[in-house]
Each structure stands twice: as structure tokens, then as C-alpha cells.
């Protein structure tokens, strides 16, 4: 393994440049070559081999071309919250299998062991620059961040607990939509979560919805679009219907940039784009502006 990595050093070392162009990524799915986690990884946009450490230090942005690496939930949490402040909630809820879907539990177990997640969302409490807040982060590596009964329940409980504790909620959304393996029960999660958001809002509390790539389907059509403030990462795909479904429906190709975060800002559905390096600052500003006080030092 180590040898393998060193071999890559040889071929890659001259490619590591510490310049950052502001040119954003064009095609995020163009490359499928997998380089094992470790010291190096390959940027799917510019194909350069880069130090993982450099990428992490750079808010998971390619130091060469500025590409935003996909951020899984745990990496997102450690990037956003104050060090050591995260307290995780509701980690062992039981998944329903109303359709007796063949192999569903087995698949869940497998994904759980690969991702170090119990479900497609992590929820809990943290501080961000000293401001105490409830937080949820969805993860696209867990069955495409799809929403089943447990995801719906964890998010509902997040809002209920936040309402009880008089705390704001920050939710990083990322989902392919409803979880088909749970049938109509997964559809009901849209109503369940939305009504919990409503009660939280009626208690006068702030909800910041942060949309990341991709946010589609039932998640877009429920809590993702219900924030008091809706932020998004640059170029994140955000929509109700997926681009392929739309192309099949209208039988033509979608224009460049359709359903990207910038498109949603233009059409009035997202408040603003926030770059990765500005996330903590923006969230702290919004928390302060809503009247929340710092709990301690960051």
C-alpha cells in the first residue's frame, strides 16, 4: 500500500503546484479512477495528484484548480464546527422495512460499515465560532443521501430538540430524494419533517438550510427549501426533478448551468452562494444577527 503511494509520488510530484485559479470545475464526473485514501488523491477536475493533507487544510478544495471535492458528512462536520464541540444524537434508530425489500437490511449494514455512518444523516449539537446550534449533515455516500424513515426521524427529532432547547438549526442538505426501498413510508417523511420545521419556526427560532451537491427530489420538496435563510455551495445541483428525468420529459438537452446553485439564486430560490472557506464566518454572522449569543470561545 505504502509502496503504491510512493510510486504515485514519483509520477505526480511535478504536478503539485500551489497555485489556485478561480476557474470552477466543469465536469465533476469525468473521472472514475480510484486512488486509495491515504497520502494522495487525484482531482477529478484537473487530474492532478494532490496531497490529501493539503486538500483538507484547503477546506477540501483542490489546491491546483479550485475544484470542490465531495464532502462526506464527518469531514463536513469537522470543517464547520468548533473543534471538539460536536455531540452526536440518535445514532441507533431502527430502520423500517415495510416492503420487505430483498436485501435491504444487508445493504444497509454494508453501507454502514463502509461509511462509518449509521444513516444518511448525522445530527447533533455543536458550537460554531462560539455560537451554540443544532446541526445536521447529510451524506451522499450513504445510499445517495436518500431519505427513509430513519433519516426523516433523525431530522424531525433534530428540529423537535432544537425547539425544546431554544436553539437554531443548521442543516447541510444533500440527497438523491426519497428512499425507494421504503415505498410510501419514505414519502411520508417529507410531511413529517416539514411540520417539525414549521413548529421550530413558530417558536421564533432560526433555520439555515445549506444546499450542497446534489440536493434533489423529496428533500428539495421538503425541509431543504424551508430555511429562513437558504445558502448553497457553488455549482451545487439543486432541483426537484433530476436533470435526466427532465431531459427525458422534454426530449432535449438542458442548457449549461441549469439547476445549479447560481441558477437558483437567479430565479430567487436561494439567498446566496457561500464558498467553503466562508462557511463558518457566514453561519456565525447569521446566528449573531438572529439574536443568539456566544456560549464560549471558539
Amino acid at each position: 500500500m505504502l509502496k503504491e503511494n510512493f510510486k504515485k509520488t514519483q509520477t505526480a510530484s511535478k504536478g503539485i503546484k500551489r497555485v489556485r485559479t478561480s476557474k470552477p470545475a466543469k465536469d465533476k464526473n469525468s473521472d472514475k479512477i480510484h486512488i486509495p485514501d491515504g497520502l494522495f488523491k487525484k482531482c477529478p477536475n484537473c487530474n492532478e495528484i494532490v496531497f490529501v493533507e493539503d486538500v483538507v487544510d484547503n477546506s477540501h478544495i483542490c489546491p491546483v484548480c479550485g475544484y470542490y471535492f465531495k464532502l462526506m458528512a464527518r469531514a463536513r462536520i469537522s470543517m464547520v464546527v468548533d473543534k471538539g464541540s460536536f455531540e452526536e444524537w440518535d445514532t441507533n434508530l431502527l430502520t423500517e422495512d415495510p416492503l420487505c425489500f430483498p436485501g435491504y437490511y444487508k445493504k444497509l449494514e454494508k453501507v454502514q460499515s463502509v461509511t462509518d455512518l449509521d444513516e444518511a444523516v448525522i445530527t447533533g449539537k455543536c458550537t460554531i465560532r462560539g455560537y451554540e446550534t443544532c446541526i445536521g449533515v447529510m451524506s451522499s455516500d450513504f445510499l445517495m443521501g436518500s431519505m427513509g424513515s430513519v433519516v426523516g426521524e433523525k431530522i424531525t427529532r433534530l428540529f423537535e430538540k432544537a425547539t425544546d432547547k431554544n436553539l437554531p438549526v443548521i442543516l447541510f442538505c444533500c440527497s438523491g430524494g426519497a428512499r425507494m426501498q421504503e415505498g410510501t413510508i419514505s414519502l411520508m417523511q417529507m410531511a413529517k419533517t416539514s411540520q417539525a420545521v414549521k413548529r421550530h419556526s413558530e417558536a421564533g427560532l432560526l433555520y439555515i438550510s445549506f444546499l450542497t451537491d446534489p440536493t434533489t427530489g423529496g428533500v428539495t420538496a421538503s425541509f431543504a427549501m424551508l430555511g429562513d435563510v437558504i445558502l448553497a455551495e457553488p455549482e451545487a445541483l439543486i432541483g426537484f426533478a433530476g436533470p435526466r428525468v427532465i431531459e427525458q420529459t422534454i426530449k432535449q438537452k438542458l442548457p449549461e448551468g441549469f439547476q445549479r446553485a447560481e441558477f437558483l439564486v437567479k430565479h430567487g430560490f436561494v439567498d446566496r452562494i457561500v464558498k467553503r472557506k466562508g462557511i463558518r464566518k457566514s453561519l456565525a454572522y447569521l446566528l449573531a444577527s438572529a439574536g443568539y449569543n456566544k456560549k464560549g470561545d471558539e
Binding site: M190, A191, S194, Q195, V197, K198, T220, A221, S222, F223, A224, M225, L226, I238, G239, F240, F269
Partner: peptide
């Protein structure tokens, strides 16, 4: 998406 979400809400 926003229209549907708002109805549920």
C-alpha cells in the same frame, strides 16, 4: 420543490 415544500409546511 419550493412550492411542494411550502404546501407541506
Amino acid at each position: 420543490g419550493q412550492a411542494i415544500a411550502n404546501n407541506l409546511y
